[in-house]
Design a protein around this nucleic acid. Structure first.
Lengths: 212, 212
DNA sequence: GGAAAACACGAGAGATCGCTCGCGTTTCAT
DNA sequence: ATGAAACGCGAGCGATCTCTCGTGTTTTCC
């Protein structure tokens, strides 16, 4: 059993493939096409052939970069998560309890709404009930970290509240946000801004009686 | 062209089939099986063969009562709508503006939560992004009537508010309700009741500043 | 310059699903 | 009792979708 190539002998799962610049370009191209198709048809209804066609490549080419359909959604989700952390990582960072709640809520909502408007596929992947098994974990992980962030943001305002209640409040806030996001994405222009204001009002009026 | 049978000559879409008692039983049996399968797998992922198996009949039998898969979901939706109207038709009827808002909101939420807990498939069919074309109309119709009911409920409390704003408020209320319902259905026992209380709080605190 | 590896293609294998069809059984009206 | 119609079965047709494979092209490395 000669060590023909140390690369081959190593972990086949590690990096069995050295990507060229062209390959990296194809990958982002395919992910953009996938985002477009997922947005219009949802995950399950989206066919890999349709994604390849949207990207202007053959089905075989698609499977040179992704082992299966699920991996496309997972990679897309991970890149979106990264983008989210990079752009809005501090959007929900614990703030000085001296800052008014109105400001904290308003800023957090504005940033997240902005992100979701620029990446509508994010909402599609999060909200869809047709997500495959492997991706449900990513989904739950994201939800958990989101809840954790909101909890951390809320805790300074709710010093003497049981942890279970804070958690529940965070879950309710995220639920409200998701519902509001759906309404915001469904409208345009002035009407959209009106719904953003309403979303802030809902959160603010829900939280205000709790913070003192 | 002899009128061999006035029944045949009439509308083929009318009642081309006289159902026997056994057939009616099969239909409800199939709809119950469909509700079960839809709940666990969603609409698109649910196969007609799986529904037939769940009901303990052959695929051919299923298609003796429903022309296609979509018709199953539509008939199920219509029966749920009927049941809803029968049981909670007056849940959102305009109330005396003298009754406190808290009571009106609490009663409406309690009734709808109760209904959805007993018919979880209702939420699945309403919430799924994987609904076929013909059913989207039913979906939109239900949503529109729901919004209309909430508008009617709200209007007495908001005498001098532009209609567009009332409508937006109604949309927000329904969105909040859907989000709360999701949280409620995800928990059991005492925790579930806690979320019901939170849902009422959210709606109440959102609406209270508007009613005077 | 030449070998190896990455990239690209597209036909189609294999699997699944919606739905049909032919035939046998049960129920009903007369 | 008997014919008609409703009920019931399950193999399988046709369409669709995911993913593979053999082949040819481009890039990289020495």
């Amino acid at each position: 059993m000669p060590a023909k190539s140390e690369r081959t002998a190593k972990a086949a799962k590690e990096q069995p493939r050295r990507r060229q610049a062209r390959g990296e370009r194809r990958i982002t191209q395919l992910l953009e096409a996938a985002a477009s198709v997922f947005c219009t048809t949802g995950y399950t209804a989206a066919s890999t052939n349709a994604i390849a066609r949207e990207a202007g490549v053959s089905p075989g080419t698609l499977y040179q970069f992704f082992p299966n359909k699920e991996a496309i959604a997972i990679e897309l989700g991970e890149r979106l998560m990264g983008e989210m952390r990079r752009t809005y990582g501090e959007a929900l960072a614990p703030v000085d309890p001296a800052t008014p709640l109105e400001e904290a809520v308003g800023a957090a909502v504005d940033r997240f709404i902005d992100f979701n408007c620029r990446h509508p596929v994010f909402f599609t992947l999060m909200h869809g009930p047709d997500i495959p098994g492997r991706m449900a974990e990513e989904h739950d992980a994201l939800h958990a970290t989101l809840i954790g962030r909101v909890e951390a943001l809320l805790t300074p305002f709710l010093p003497d509240t049981p942890a279970a209640d804070v958690r529940r409040t965070a879950e309710v806030c995220v639920g409200i946000y998701k519902a509001g996001l759906e309404l915001v994405l469904a409208h345009e222009g002035e009407e959209r801004e009106a719904y953003v204001r309403e979303l802030k009002n809902v959160l603010l009026r829900y939280l205000t009686p709790l913070v003192d």
